[in-house]
Amino acid sequence: MDLLAFGDTGWGDELGRAMLMTLAVALTAMALGLVIGALGATAKLAGAWPVRLAARLYTTIFRGIPELLIIYLFFFGSSGGAKWVLELFFDSVGYVEVDAFIIGALAVGLISGSYSTEIFRGAAIAVPRGQVEAGMAAGMSRGLILRRILAPQALRFALPGLGNVWQLTLKDTSLIMVTGLVELMRQSYVAAGSSREPFLFYIAAAAIYLGLTSVSGAGFRRAERWAGRGTQQGAGQ
């Protein structure tokens, strides 16, 4: 048990910092995913056919290919990719190294976004068409219909699905240990190796992950109840 103590003798504070890193990557990736998801759903529902095709290709690839393979692509490809982008603006750039946090958040964010796209798309379809037509009949502009009618209701329909995406995203961050970023999985791997107590540290990490998933799961359930207030589902609970 001393091994889990805080301070110089134990790994407690290291694990705590690693947990914060896991949360930071997961929140950044989720936020990125939500932006991508909103754009992707718009592209799929209202885009011209090349845009629709691009969005469809994106969701097929990022949902159909293993997360780990995608992370390897970003890990090994980030240096060359960043160099290529920078050389569009500057003459010649030497070796570019991209921070592991950015690589991880970007890779997991794009995976998260591919799932969010489908959730938002389904949620937007679930808003009754008559309501949009009523908005048009009342003389609302497209932006106003989106803001006052479509978005608030779609968000409510999307909430349970987004809760699942968050759980996936949180767990997917464990895979970026292969890039060397010291998040919870990497830290417990290092601690397990140097203390020769792998079982203890992996159980400790499992307990922390369970804490994170169950607390955020409870948060999402509360949010669902809040968003469902005034509806029949909300009243029934």
Binding site: K171, Y202, Y209, T213
Partner: peptide, 8 residues
């Protein structure tokens, strides 16, 4: 098993 990462 649903609340922890498979890698773990």
């Amino acid at each position: 098993f649903r609340g922890t990462p498979l890698l773990l």
